[in-house]
Computed example of a mutant assay.
Amino acid sequence: MVRVAEHLVARGHRPLVIAPEPASGMPRVTGPLGYPVVRVPSLPMPGYPTFRLGLPSRRLSEALVAHGTDVVHLAGPFFLGARGSTVAQHLGLPTVAVYQTDVPSYATAYRMRELGGAAAWRWLRRIHNAADRTLAPSTASATALLAHGVERVWLWRRGVDTDRFDPKHRSAALRRALVPGGEVLVGYVGRLAVEKRVELLAGVSKLPGVRLVIIGGGPVEASLRQALPDAVFLGVRQGAQLARLYASLDIFVHSGPFETFGQTLQEAASSGLPVVAPAAGGPVDLVNHGQTGLLVPPNSDQALADAVARLAASPRLRQSMGVAGRRLVEGRSWTAIGDELIEHYSAVLGTAQPAATPAAA
């Protein structure tokens, strides 16, 4: 959403972001952003206290009216976005709903029975079918939406900053610190949460000649440190520091089977890395099996370990896949993706017809 807001400002538009209040003690965005941010009351998600759920608030309607809003962008609507949809309908504003979280699977992972399965899909169907368009980030998520009765589904993928995530940021000093023995450096980047199934990387962490680094934070970090005693946990990293870490890896590995897209896979490919990921959801679109990386059966620790071992044994294969992966993402700039989104806005406003193709076509 930050990249989208930045792009809208650059194109002369006036975005307004409405978001939940962060948890107490969590860092807040400070300094000039170029666009206003309105905060609404929030509650912690059960089992994930730093993940906040926005609550219905009069601030929503007041903010939209005061801003002179033309179109409402619902980012991952389920809680706050559901209210946003209702308010937009009351105000007669067109809406674009972005599907970016596999809520039914997440609800199952967190044992939230009242939000799982058919109930979650009924709620999602109601929200998305009230929107003028639903934008899905991958063919797998678009297929799931259509199969569950969601209408007017279009593909809208994600961009990647190929200047920030670039092989040129590889750091010999960083590698000496992480792998003084010259091991193959394998990395996971992402939230440390139940649905990410990071514990499946235990086999990877035990491979001879391999060092596994975990970059990120979340509610299951303590249990993962016990499950992966041979791994190096680096915590949350951002910006240039994160870019150096990506570029200094030899292999990128992802374990989560519930990704609607998989942004870290694009960042890894942009950094010149071969990618190992489950053959499910967004990764199916992002990894060309055998060319830019390896896709493996979901939820299989052995398959992940076998794929990483294959790449660890072949520097030439890692090099060729890394080059191919970088080439694959070079056309996926945030500028191109942002302009595509503006075309969707124009379409629901009735001022233009985008060149993009409906997912149902």
Rank of each mutant, 00 (worst) to 15 (best):
V65M: 03
V37E: 03
P257C: 04
E62R: 15
I337K: 01
G262V: 11
G149D: 03
N129G: 02
S61N: 03
T162I: 13
V65Q: 13
A277C: 07
A63W: 06
M112H: 09
L249D: 07
D102R: 06
L124K: 04
P137K: 12
L174I: 12
P208Y: 00
P167T: 04
W154P: 01
M112L: 15
S57F: 05
T101F: 06
H13L: 14
P358V: 04
T95R: 15
T69L: 04
P315S: 06
P219H: 00
L124C: 07
L16A: 09
P36C: 07
A142H: 04
H148W: 02
Q263F: 01
R11N: 01
T357I: 14
R122D: 15
F233Y: 03
G209Q: 05
L174S: 06
T30A: 12
A120Y: 02
G217M: 01
A324Y: 12
H128Q: 08
L43T: 14
V189R: 03
A75R: 15
Q238C: 03
A280N: 04
G34I: 10
R316E: 15
S42Y: 11
L91Y: 04
P208E: 05
L224G: 00
V4Y: 12
A222F: 05
A231Q: 01
S24D: 15
A307N: 09
V2M: 10
G293D: 13
